[in-house]
Design a binder for these strands. Structure first.
Length: 421
DNA sequence: CGAATTTGACCCGCGC
DNA sequence: GCGCGGGTCAAATTCG
């Protein structure tokens, strides 16, 4: 008798559970529909903007193409008259293609590379940007852009007692050097999550304050990343994309950091600095300032440093690992055009009423970033469309220099490169 | 014993 | 051309 009663209770519980799941399913469908609608409207807006821009461009196509040619040294048929940079429109096939070929052909063993082997040589060039520049002086524009992308660096400054920050990737140390002007050695690491992955990073302590760890990332992963690594990879590639989209149009050395600052690190206007000066354009994300900032990492008592960030945990699955710095950013692996950590402008938000990212100013930074992250990571196509749309919308703030976009800074938030080395 | 790290040698770009 | 400095290689060593 009690067994029957138990069975009935179980059945009732399961029915309740099914009903609850149905309700949840309906909500999710509603959300999906909302997102789809928003995406469609945004896509339409993007199309309209691009058409308008194309019309403007085609009115003076020769001047534009001549300017591009002068800047890059070759025409790029992919771009045509569209001013949206490739790294924002493509979902990374160009870089991926090449980097995929790297993985199949690149050999770190230089002695094994027969001289004159074009394929191996090409891979070697992509491995070493210095060689690439020298050995292929007449490369097409897109290749030049890719080479520049590889050269672009993202430097993260953070306080840490640990010898290296935990970013979710597997790294293999391949060298260490004493850098001039810094008593602390600089360590060189290479991503070992996939054979031929071109991503490298340098780790060095700041000479002025040795509690500050400077980690410089270079390159884009050519393999899927674990959740814990996606955010940082996305952040660095996004920062690099942002940097290059501006640095290639600016010859001033220091260029606008406002836009990047607002987008990569929407919570703080003085955490991201950009140096487009030689030898490599570098974005510096400074996490050592503003102790009251919610994004400010806190020193861990032992082991790798982590960045506690309330309200943003879903991207990290490892229960033992508290959300670390990159957590605050969105992620899209293999996508150099990802616009991470996006803070929606009211204009954009109005056109994209994401369920969590309402145009109303967010009550907290955490919600903003969480919502933006959710929106961005939802769909890679949407990511590309959104980034392109933003670029287009910001077009009002753009000027064209030598046929390329230049983001105009509305406030004078240009900070000197604080690199210590 | 295989993987990871260390470390001296080497390569390359750049300035003088 | 030479020296310096940054970056990488690879043999030796250490570690798990």
């Amino acid at each position: 008798m009690t067994m029957i009663k138990n069975g009935m209770n179980e059945l009732a519980a399961m029915q309740a559970e099914v009903a609850r799941m149905k309700e949840e399913n309906q909500k999710l469908r509603a959300v999906l529909g909302q997102v789809t609608t928003s995406y469609n409207s945004l896509h339409m807006h993007l199309t309209t903007l691009m058409q308008q821009r194309n019309q403007r461009e085609t009115s003076t196509p020769q001047a534009h193409e001549a300017a591009v040619e002068e800047k890059t040294g070759a025409k790029d048929p992919d771009h045509g008259g569209v001013l949206v940079p490739r790294q924002f429109m493509d979902l990374g096939p160009a870089a991926d293609d090449e980097e995929t070929s790297n993985s199949s052909t690149a050999s770190p063993d230089r002695s094994a590379s027969p001289p004159g082997n074009a394929e191996v040589r090409s891979a070697e060039q992509s491995w070493n940007p210095h060689k690439a520049l020298k050995l292929n002086p007449t490369k097409p524009a897109d290749q030049a852009q890719e080479a520049t992308m590889r050269k672009a660096r993202v430097s993260v400054r953070a306080r840490s007692e640990a010898p290296m920050i935990t970013d979710g990737c597997q790294w293999r140390k391949y060298g260490q050097k004493m850098a001039k002007g810094n008593p602390c050695p600089r360590a060189y690491y290479r991503c070992t999550m996939a054979a031929g992955c071109p991503v490298r990073k340098q780790v060095q302590r700041c000479a002025d304050d040795r509690s500050i760890l400077i980690t410089t990332y270079e390159g884009t992963h050519n393999h899927p990343l674990p959740p814990a690594a996606m955010a940082m990879a996305s952040t660095t590639s996004s920062a690099a994309s942002m940097l290059l989209s501006g640095s290639m149009s600016s010859t001033d050395g220091l260029m606008n950091s406002n836009f990047l600052t607002r987008t990569i690190l929407p919570c703080s206007s003085n955490m991201a600095t950009i140096s487009a000066s030689a030898p490599f354009p570098t974005v510096t994300l400074d996490l050592t300032q503003n102790p009251t900032n919610p994004l400010q990492y806190q020193r861990a008592p032992a082991g790798p440093f982590h960045v506690p960030y309330p309200g943003a945990a879903p991207a990290f699955s490892a229960p033992s690992q508290p959300p670390s710095l990159p957590q605050i950013f969105g992620q899209t692996p293999l996508n150099q055009s990802t616009f991470s950590g996006l803070q929606m402008s009211p204009e954009i938000a109005a056109q994209f009423p994401h369920p969590k990212a309402q145009p109303v100013m967010p009550p907290s930074m955490a919600e903003t970033v969480t919502a933006a992250t959710a929106a961005i990571t939802a769909d890679p196509n949407f990511t590309a469309a959104l980034t392109a749309a933003i670029k287009s919308i910001i077009g009002g703030n753009h000027q064209t220099v030598n046929g390329r976009n230049l983001i105009i800074n509305n406030n004078n938030n240009i900070l000197p490169d604080k690199s210590c080395s």
